[in-house]
Design a protein around this nucleic acid. Sequence first.
RNA 1: GGGCCCGUGGUCUAGCCCGGCUAUGACAUCCGCUUGACUUGCGGAGGAUCCCCAGUUCAAAUCUGGGCGGGCCCACCA
Length: 837
Amino acid sequence: MSSETKEQKQEETEEEFPKRYDPKVEEPHWQKFWDDNQISKFDPKDTTRKIFSIDTPPPTVSGKMHLGHAFGNSQQDFIARFKRMNGFNVLQPFGTDDNGLPTQTLIQKLKHVRAKDLGRTKFSKLCIETLENELKPTYLADWKRLGISCDFDVKYSTIDPHSRKVSQKSFIDLYNAGRQYRIDAPAMFCPHCKTAIAQVECEDKDIASFFNDIVFKITTEDGKEEELIIATTRPELLPACVAIFYHPEDKRFHHLRGKTAKVPLYDMQVPILEDKRADPQKGTGIVMCCTFGDQTDCEWQKAHKLPIIEAIGKDGKMTEVAGKYQGNSPEIARKLIIEDLKDSKLLLTQKPITHAVNVHERCETPVEFIQSKQWFIKYLDLKDKMLEWGNELKWFPHHMKNRYDNWVNCLAWDWCISRQIFFGIPFPVWYCKDCDEVILAKEEDLPVDPLEQKPPIDECPKCKCKEFIGEKDIINTWATSSLTPTIVKELFKGEPCYEKLKSEPMSLRPQGHDIISFWLFNTVVKSQLHHNMLPWNDCFINGWMLDPKGKKMSKSKGNVVEPQVMIEKYCADALRFMAAGCSLGEDLPFPEKELVAGTKTLNKIWNASRFALMHLENFDPNSIDKEKIESNLEVIDKWLISKLNKVIKAGTDSFEKHEFSKCRSETDKFFWQVFCDNYLELCKYRIYSEDIEPEKKLSAQYTIYKVLLATLKLYSPFLPHITEAIYQRFFKEFESDISIHISKWPKFEENLINETSENAGDLAVDIVGAIRKYKSENQLSLKSELPELNIDKPEFEDKINLVIADICAVTHAKGVKFGKLNKEPILTNEFGVGLYL
RNA sequence: GGGCCCGUGGUCUAGCCCGGCUAUGACAUCCGCUUGACUUGCGGAGGAUCCCCAGUUCAAAUCUGGGCGGGCCCACCA
């Protein structure tokens, strides 16, 4: 070859396989390629392949992917890609959770409107338009930019007509099954947002307050007055006081049993009762029960059938029972009442305290309990079954099941699903104006909006009245998002895969540990109630991505790390590399240096591939006698292939258990230490030498091809972009698959495990290592030539003879001799081999 | 109050289920080298009472019990 053509050739290679890997160009390029070629397509017509279906967590609106998403979705994607390469028809849908209060709040803020000014219909329209046109496209772009292999054509929104239909049907089915009931009940209520809220929407907040010792008066049998001191933080609830409790074993108060006490400032007598929920240690040991100061008050009301006096109304203000305090907020009323108590000498002391108060997590307003008609799902009777269902699920990691069990064991209420907000899925229900009879929508009419549409009947079946009122409340978002498996499956109605999908649980639910008690739990409950089966076989619980100091990321703390910024600074593969390094379920402070390590790995993969492929120019794996080559492989090649197979085995086994991080670390170790640092060096002399026997060169080329391709495949779920970039540049020509991501996962070939070769190879590597150490300690260049190498273990002669050429080539030794020399060895290696020069 | 997880060189971490050589790797530090893919590289060095105490065992980072420390979930919070 003339020097001119050689240069030309060089340039061509450069262009085809540039010296540097540029993720900013490559990543978007391959993302488009996958889109165009529908690499992540779920095939609904395919009834032969096994389905692997993932109940992907639909992100809530905000329009931007945050690091937690990037982390969790990457991990989910590793599993999806692994399954795809293992021959599964993978269903990885893309949903968004646009339902409910978060959306309502966001849209109000973005559009500077108030939901109640527009009304439900107009406001909902605005929400949906903003979601579809402004927020979702950004979301989708973020997901694609990270290389998540969802089938983006399989999409849903928890507010779209399809989900509305599924959700409303769920309500009707549960109603017909007798599990849906509507009662007047104390429900947690946010006076600020003016809606009922569920237990899970509350959080604790420390608030400064006062313990007020208040005097209740009792008239004893002999006509004398006794004073009863009660400590309370909520004197404004005095008008709603319905009873006084002490602990049954608290002898101090036994004499009061059956008596009544007068409520200060109000002309009311309330009974004095026993209940073991009253704590003798707390306050004065005696407690007043008001409608509804807190959860215990609600329980007492139920247990002792106490009257209900509403002191706080649905507008968040004091009601008429509060007398002169009517119309004030509870906060103001409290101040006024305290003043009046002081004036009447009914307030003994005030002790400042800080106590945790249940507040609505979105607005931090203290939660009140108010009496109203709410829809509940009856499920407290199923606690034992719920525990069984939890046992049937396969948990990764297993200990996360404890949280589920803990939650079930602590359940105290049926599930309140009514919300008094504007944006969401309406109840498919009307009420008869006269008798309040419930009129359900017909299934074929779903989805319906009872505020816009008429009920399916003209007159009430009970009272023959012809007027109906549509339900104004909407269904809480969790009651819909707990239906995601059904929402996804129903998208395929009429497709060949539908029956199969419907008849079995989905394969996997990946999600964070923070929502085990609602999303996971509620999904299990709904799936069992509706379909009598688990929603999925496995659930995979990922941890939280914390800030670099290990604190929770939050906008208010200003410690949010944005994945988009990290992708820009490093690249998507680097971010995914990091996500692949964390073990299951563990929270993890954001390790930015893992992204640096990822970038280095990408560089190493690129360069090693570039080197390897440069020397495979005339190698065509399809026109060689594979069997002949395989039976005549050089020892060091067998050594490498044997080690590769062990990595394939370990990597595949751990991936099957969703322990992808082990697969990454095994691959890392093999690729970097075995393949690059040792093998490529050991085989160089065969590659470069002009006068080497062609078989020996071919053996190296065959090995490089095979091992590099397998390594890329092992890396491909984690690093989809760079592996594709290399596959397309070289391997595609010889392999039939249009993308590495739908090629076959490397197969473990037990017959290629070769302990003899591994021993010999390990010995060679060890001797090379010893020489490198010697040179390093003597500050010699690694290229410096050595005279003959003497090895004092003749029993290794056979083994070393197999790899002698490789050793000499790497250490630049002239040759190797065996036998003891009468001088100190330069060093001794771990095989007890003394080396002499 | 109930439950769960975690505690390993300066920092982060693997190993723990299933006990066994000199405890893994990354980053950082120091010394050296530039081997015809890679200064985003290569070789080497220093650096760990594996939280503490007790027990089981020939043998404990690993198993058991107790303690200390950190975190999370749930409940309570008159």
